[in-house]
């Protein structure tokens, strides 16, 4: 049984966030940072006091913030977070959320739309059971092809509404998917591995041998400063190849968000599966 807690990990990441928010950031980085703050706050509200203070974010001039500059999941995480902490930052965030509510169909057809609908719906943190059968070609999970794997992940995220719909046992899909997650981890493809692990959780595999192994991996790749991932070589290479300020910032923001999100989905909070989408607004 794994001994890593998403609450403690979030508190540690929040401390790192506090050290980087003081300086002016590009829109893309700022969106990622706010999204990461939202995940930290969802996992550990008490230890993230500073992150949920409107004043903390004032220096970033968010009044004219362009939410559409980042990917839809990060942007929505950021917008719902800013709306939640209120202050005078809320207008742009509210407008963005209203816009998404209007343009995203009620019946999502892909993972991004499902993420928006599930987050905005947020009428319950309980999981709803359904008898749905996933229409997945199992060969895609034994093809060695990441594009096919991502299509499977899209289907799972869409149809389980990011794990808020509990579907019945789907044959070997979960077991095969665990293998895909381990394969991605073995290649150190963390975004793909973490996404696959979250999909395992949506299929009810949290607590399995492989998922616990994945959870341990994530816990052990958190650095002392709170960020996730062992990227010394990649970062040194980025610094060698670019003269811009902090090329690694985007990497650490993105991976840390993915890592905390995955830890949360693989863990239980108060004895129940934790679903980030049910805890964002």
């Amino acid at each position: 049984m794994t001994h890593f807690s998403p609450e403690n990990a979030a508190a540690s990441t929040a401390k790192w966030l506090q050290t980087i928010i003081g300086s002016r950031m590009e829109t893309e980085h700022l969106t990622q940072a706010i999204a990461l703050a939202s995940v930290c706050a969802a996992l550990n509200p008490k230890s993230c006091d500073l992150l949920i203070q409107p004043a903390f974010w004032q220096a970033q001039n968010l009044r004219n913030f362009d939410f559409s500059a980042s990917n839809i999941v990060n942007s929505l995480m950021a917008a719902t977070f800013l709306q939640k902490i209120k202050g005078d930052l809320v207008t742009g965030a509210s407008n963005y959320i209203t816009l998404l509510n209007e343009v995203v169909p009620q019946s999502p057809t892909n993972a991004n739309e499902a993420y928006v609908r599930t987050t905005l719906q947020n009428n319950t943190s309980d999981q709803i059971e359904t008898e749905m059968v996933l229409d997945i070609d199992l060969r895609h999970l034994r093809s060695g092809n990441n594009t096919k794997l991502k299509n499977v992940l899209d289907i799972i995220e869409t149809h389980t509404r990011f794990g808020t719909l509990v579907i019945s046992e789907q044959g070997p899909i979960g077991a095969l998917l665990e293998g895909s997650a381990m394969q991605a981890l073995s290649k150190y493809d963390l975004p793909l591995a973490f996404r696959a692990l979250r999909a395992c959780a949506y299929l009810g595999r949290a607590g399995s041998f492989v998922c616990d192994s994945g959870l341990d991996f994530i816990g052990l790749c958190q650095n002392a400063n709170g960020v996730f991932g062992d990227f010394d070589t990649s970062v040194a290479k980025m610094r060698r190849d670019t003269s811009e300020g902090q090329p690694e910032l985007s990497l650490y923001l993105s991976i840390s968000l993915q890592a905390l999100w995955t830890m949360a989905e693989l863990s239980e909070v108060s004895g129940r599966p934790f679903r980030l989408t049910s805890n964002m607004t």
Partner: peptide, 18 residues
């Protein structure tokens, strides 16, 4: 139990990499 869990995970991983 450990061996069964481990071999299942390893088998799925080997299938994923063909």
């Amino acid at each position: 139990t450990y061996l069964l869990d481990y071999t299942a995970g390893a088998l799925a991983m080997c299938l994923a990499r063909c």
